[in-house]
Design a protein around this nucleic acid. Structure first.
Length: 428
RNA sequence: GUGACCGUAGCUCAGGCGGUUAGAGCGCCAGGUUGUGGCCCUGGAGGUCGGGGGUUCAAGUCCCCUCGGUCACCCCA
């Protein structure tokens, strides 16, 4: 049947019992639980921020010229305020940190988050207009251990879920000065070849030369080979910081590869940048990404700079990776008890009985359609109930219910008032 | 934003070069058992063939447009 309304393009419903983990609520619960567990072991505390944020916060935080801000935001005006549905969560978390003066709390702030984000891109596998991110931030530390811990935590979440075959790539982007200097050098290098570059690369030459570096065109890749190297422009302190991060990762046995061309798409990153990939989830292969963003706080209005590192990861991509890895999914637990009432007064009794069983801690349900015993029995079987409790006029008169165990099919007679105790002791 | 492919019952799909009331399996509902599920049998409900326009005596089948889905580019989680 054709339905009048459907979920908006690039958004989807998450249903119980769905075949794919991406749209299966049981899979989401399971994964969210595991993520929280790892976050808590890293002593991260949960922060929840609004889905709606001021447009300026995102524009300034993420960067006016980034793709996200120039063409991917769901934004609208109401009264004199411009709103956005957040396209990511780091800038909002920093906003909350500043707004609530979390720097006054003892030590660094270790925060994690989970929630929906929005980007108006063309949907494809692993990329949706409403998608879900989780991530963690350590705010208030310049120490390389903070970087390494964030990276270790990212990796830990995937391995805790049984995803071994991920690839960690890391790089350093240098400080606030080195990046602009490098960008300038890149422009100077590519400018003479401008005519040979593709239209997109020519555009990037103006907007974001760093992006030319990960071109897929062969003749451009050749040019990139002898382009100036980022590392040559990185300041000594950043280099030392990068070395320290690498040593820490090596010490705890987190495998990584260095990728001198890894640049992140958001403006606020400096120094450490990293990305975790899965080769098995399609073209959108980045499971998670992150890095240091010492510059963000100032660009969203802080008078003094607040150093921070963090990562953000995509829930849907994690679920996709688990699907590719053939991970098993917990099912929704079937009801322990299915109550069948025959006739009006029995139905009424069953309603109350169900409530008492639930209060005793049992999962109990009953049909609400006054159908035949046979039909109700079939439903009980199909929903996977462990027991049927049958109540008709005879049972009402005698005070004993029929209790049928569904796998063996044996049936016993149990007084109403001992039903909770009986079912609690017999359930598996 | 660009491109490719796809769009027939709730689901998975059949419907040779256009030709009479559009099918199957599964699922759903009911019955075969005056109060007993699973297996089996019988019956039923459910489709304006994504939508609109065109060609034709005739369109689920051909053409155009449109909407949606999928995947890729781009970008990124």
């Amino acid at each position: 049947m054709k339905t009048t309304y459907r979920s908006i393009e690039g958004t989807f419903d998450i249903l119980p019992g769905s075949a794919s983990p991406v749209t299966r609520s049981e899979a989401w619960c399971h994964v969210e639980e595991r993520i929280r567990a790892v976050m808590q072991r890293f002593a991260f505390a949960e922060i929840r921020t609004p889905v709606l944020e001021p447009l300026d916060l995102i524009a300034r935080g993420v960067g006016e010229l980034t793709d996200i801000v120039t063409k991917e935001m769901f934004s609208f005006e109401r009264g004199s305020t411009n709103y956005v549905l957040r396209p990511e969560m780091t800038a909002p978390v920093m906003r909350a940190y500043l707004q609530h003066h979390l720097d006054q709390r003892p030590g660094e702030q270790r925060l994690f988050y989970m929630g929906p984000c929005f980007r108006a891109e063309r949907p494809q596998k692993g990329r949706y207009r409403q998608f879900h991110q989780f991530g963690a931030e350590i705010i208030g530390s310049t120490d390389a251990r903070a970087d390494a811990e964030i990276i270790a935590c990212t990796v830990e979440i995937y391995s805790a879920l049984g995803l071994g075959s991920t690839l960690l790539r890391i790089n350093t982007l240098g400080d606030a000065e080195s990046r602009p200097r490098y960008i300038q050098a890149l422009r100077a290098y590519f400018e003479p070849f401008s005519q040979e570059l593709s239209a997109t690369s020519q555009g990037r030459l103006k907007s974001n030369p760093l992006r030319i570096l990960d071109t897929k065109l062969e003749h451009e890749a050749a040019l990139v080979q002898s382009a100036p190297r980022l590392m040559d422009f990185v300041d000594p302190d950043s280099r030392a910081h990068y070395e320290a991060v690498k040593v820490l990762l090596a010490e705890v046995g987190v495998p990584f590869v260095e990728d001198p061309f890894l640049v992140r798409g958001l403006d606020y990153y400096s120094r450490t940048a990293f990305e975790l990939e899965s080769p098995e989830i399609g073209a959108q292969s980045a499971l998670a990404g992150g890095g240091r963003y010492d510059l963000l706080s100032v660009s969203v209005g802080s008078r003094k700079p607040v150093p921070a590192v963090g990562f953000a990861a995509g829930m849907e991509r994690l679920l996709l990776a688990l699907e590719a890895a053939d991970a098993p999914w917990p099912d929704t637990l079937p009801p322990t008890v299915f109550l069948i009432g025959l006739g009006e007064s029995a139905e009424k009794a069953v309603f109350g009985l169900a409530l008492r069983l639930r209060q005793a801690g049992l999962r109990a349900t009953h049909g609400l359609r006054s159908r035949s015993m046979k039909a109700q029995m079939r439903t009980a079987h199909r929903v996977g109930a462990g027991y049927c409790v049958i109540v008709g006029d005879e049972e009402l008169a005698s005070g004993y219910a029929q209790v049928k165990e569904m796998t063996q099919g044996v049936q016993e007679t149990v007084p109403f008032d001992v039903l909770p105790r009986y079912l609690l002791s017999h359930r598996t």
